[in-house]
Write a protein that binds this DNA or RNA. Sequence first.
DNA 1: TGCCACAACTTGTTATAACAGGTAATAATC
DNA 2: GATTATTACCTGTTATAACAAGTTGTGGCA
Lengths: 246, 246
Amino acid sequence: MPERPFAGTQPQTLYFQVREALRGRILDGEYRQHQRLPSESELMRAFGVSRITVRQALNDLVKEGLIFKLAGKGSYVSKPRPVQNLSRLQGFGEAMSRLGYKSVNRMVGLVNLPASTRVAAALLLEEGETVTEIRRARYLDNEPVALDTSYVRAELGKRLAREDLVARDIFLIIENDYGIPLGHADVSISAILAAEEQAQWLQTRSGAPLLHIERLTHERNGNPLELDDIVYRGDAFSFQARVERD
Amino acid sequence: MPERPFAGTQPQTLYFQVREALRGRILDGEYRQHQRLPSESELMRAFGVSRITVRQALNDLVKEGLIFKLAGKGSYVSKPRPVQNLSRLQGFGEAMSRLGYKSVNRMVGLVNLPASTRVAAALLLEEGETVTEIRRARYLDNEPVALDTSYVRAELGKRLAREDLVARDIFLIIENDYGIPLGHADVSISAILAAEEQAQWLQTRSGAPLLHIERLTHERNGNPLELDDIVYRGDAFSFQARVERD
DNA sequence: TGCCACAACTTGTTATAACAGGTAATAATC
DNA sequence: GATTATTACCTGTTATAACAAGTTGTGGCA
């Protein structure tokens, strides 16, 4: 097996390993912005895998916007962007660190409370059933950019209450520590005005434009797991995506 | 050839035909929300294509959020959403009609002007070179939801000036009439406040929250083609996406 | 009737193979 | 030297095949 650099505690699919190896080289600067990557044939030989495995890895990176392909020419590294990417479900800290940014969280609060109609419906609970509400502020370069309110079932909330939610992403805790694989999220993006409390935490003025994200994250088996309400400062953050025509 | 229902003026790939046939059945109501689709084996037999062709078609629909897959169980129709989908590059009217909504455009204006620094850089022009600015308001159910300002090179703008931009999407004109295949777009989403003119067109108040989309669309060969600034009313529209974990 | 094992069915991963059409380099010709 | 044709290389599409892991149904046994 020629080049399987990924050493993890769990066996990984081949395309996962190839993808992460290429990502590492892009983030390390071995492949620069706009530089052409090795061809599929070269990657097949280098990693000792079939072409379809290489293509799956490359297409995942295309989907994330890290590279782009030109028919007949090859694959190229995209221009880096400090963004929350919509092509792939990942936590904030996870997304920023993949792009080389350092993010910090601050706890606003963690309480158990009865589920509202909206939260109950999203998490498939009875209205009034106990849920855990976790609130955090997100900082980039020591500047608050987002306020995140998460709702999970009380059993999961009890476990999470014992975790270091300042330094760690909930997604990674759930996957790595609790062994619950994540599936997909349904994400809604809209624009709102900052309320007083939001403005204070985000160090902006009341009435300032905010991006509001509602995200319902599911386990891989389809069960709803976590409902998030996230507001981002409109002047300090944007979502970016590369969208393919087809 | 058993089931190739798509009859178009241009030859289409097999996975495109399978995908569009399935889309049609979902939108026609033949496959209902949460209903299970035929298995991959069944679709292979029904369409007389290989499994990889069926999977490509299904995965594209997954990518768009129209269906979701559960390992070992099958594929299911997702809950329908009246949204501008971020998974796939398409014009506003195109997106809405695929979801069964009727959208209408109104021309705000079409002028040739010197390219600003931003527009010139995006379209790879010299600053001051002539570009065409096309401005339109978008209506859903007779209600203004978006204001769209597009910049294209003057040669393309001259041709577009002769088209019916009220009834038709620019993307479809460019692809179908001019034979220029589209590739990808780089999209940025942020939140802003409505300026006076925007508020008037969108029938909302000055200072209301708007979603601001900046989109640079490329030809398939990578050349930049069109720069769009689109603002959507925050209270009447949102973007939604289904994001996979991986 | 309930439980367990096995078979059938499902999607996911990976392999090999061939052809199509686009791009770039090289060789041949004027 | 410039132009054209050919070759090599590139990604895109499609096919067949096999194995892995998850899900569901069926049959046998207690």
